[in-house]
């Protein structure tokens, strides 16, 4: 089977879903004729024309606001924020309307739409193009937040997001867009469920997005001189979080490290540690560690690799937790 990268996986999925379901459309800045600045929507305009592959005016609130109407009206819009750093223009439509319409109308209306957005650092980009703000979206009741980590899970998760009855923020780690390929075999993924990518006994390691790949490499580095049995969990859905999978794992291993690309405070890593505190504290044999960025404005690219969690940091955190 031919190997594909994440962009190809997402693109193939969009082609497939739009072919099977005429209510699905894409809309965003440069997603049509240009196929998206990362080419995730390549070829859709040629197949479906401007009616279902809409090059929108440059207005993120307008894009989401219009998509909310489309979704209530029976379509399934998959909109693109060109970079997550531009998505703050749409935050009031997300918090004020997309997330609330189901509750506000007591279920009379729902807003099944997907907001795709490339996010994250490590690609030597301009300001506003490197942040990881999943906590912004996850802190909103009624919104689901999904982050794939590989060509294998990106496609099925995007499909699940499009089929989901709720607004889904689908954050694509752009550092992983083209950095590796996989032979993709069909596999089911459910929104709200984390994946145990490797079963083990000694320590639970949780990560998501681009950090997943670094985490797997860090584990390999440790294994080159140390025998240990890690249980590695790919979170995949930030919200609603799959607490059970994490808690069960920690009950088994008694140790846990969480690796998050975002800044330290108020993020998913903090939430995971709080859940462990609530439900598995007495099983712990070591404090739960987190490896994160710092609470600073994301530096431009001359400094960004100093600030993003490194494989070395992940290795050290795992070793310290194992040896505690």
């Amino acid at each position: 089977m031919a190997k594909i990268n994440m962009v190809q996986a997402l693109n193939t999925t969009l082609h497939d879903v739009m072919e099977k379901d005429s209510s699905v459309l894409i809309m965003g800045e440069d997603v049509g004729v240009n196929g998206g600045v990362f080419r995730v929507t390549d070829g859709l305009y040629e197949k479906y024309g401007r009616e279902r592959a809409i090059d929108s005016p440059i207005a993120e609130s307008g894009i989401l606001g219009t998509a909310i109407g489309m979704a209530i009206g029976g379509l399934k819009p998959v909109i693109e924020m060109q970079f997550s750093g531009f998505s703050y223009e749409m935050m009031h439509q997300l918090e004020g309307n997309a997330s609330r319409m189901r509750n506000r109308s007591r279920g009379q209306f729902s807003v099944p739409l997907v907001v795709r957005m490339p996010y994250g650092g490590g690609v030597r980009a301009l300001e506003h193009h490197s942040e990881s703000k999943e906590a912004f979206y996850a802190h909103t009741a009624g919104v689901k937040v999904v982050i794939p980590s590989s060509p294998t899970n990106a496609g099925p998760l995007l499909r699940a997001a499009i089929e989901d009855p709720d607004p889904v923020i689908f954050m694509e780690p752009k550092r992983s867009y083209r950095s590796f390929k996989e032979s993709v075999s069909p596999k089911d993924y459910t929104i709200g469920r984390a994946e145990i990518v490797r079963s083990g006994e000694d320590i639970t390691i949780v990560s998501w997005g681009a950090m997943m790949r670094d985490t797997l490499k860090a584990v390999e580095m440790i294994e080159s001189d140390t025998e240990f049995s890690p249980e590695i969990i790919d979170l995949l859905t930030i919200s609603p979080m799959d607490a059970a999978t994490i808690v069960e794992s920690v009950k088994k291993t008694g140790r846990c490290v969480v690796i998050q690309e975002a800044q330290q405070s108020f993020g998913p890593a903090s939430e995971i540690i709080a859940l462990i505190n609530d439900q598995a504290l007495m099983y712990l044999e070591a404090p739960v560690k987190r490896v994160t960025m710092y609470d600073v404005v994301m530096p431009l690219f001359a400094r960004e690799m100093m600030y993003l969690p490194s494989k070395g940091q992940i290795v050290r955190a795992i070793r310290e937790t194992l040896e505690f």
Binding site: G65, T66, I68, G69, M70, A71, I72, G73, L75, N97
Partner: peptide, 11 residues
């Protein structure tokens, strides 16, 4: 609510 009306009309 104005963009919602646009989306509904388009849909």
């Amino acid at each position: 609510q104005l963009p919602h009306a646009v989306g509904l009309a388009y849909a």
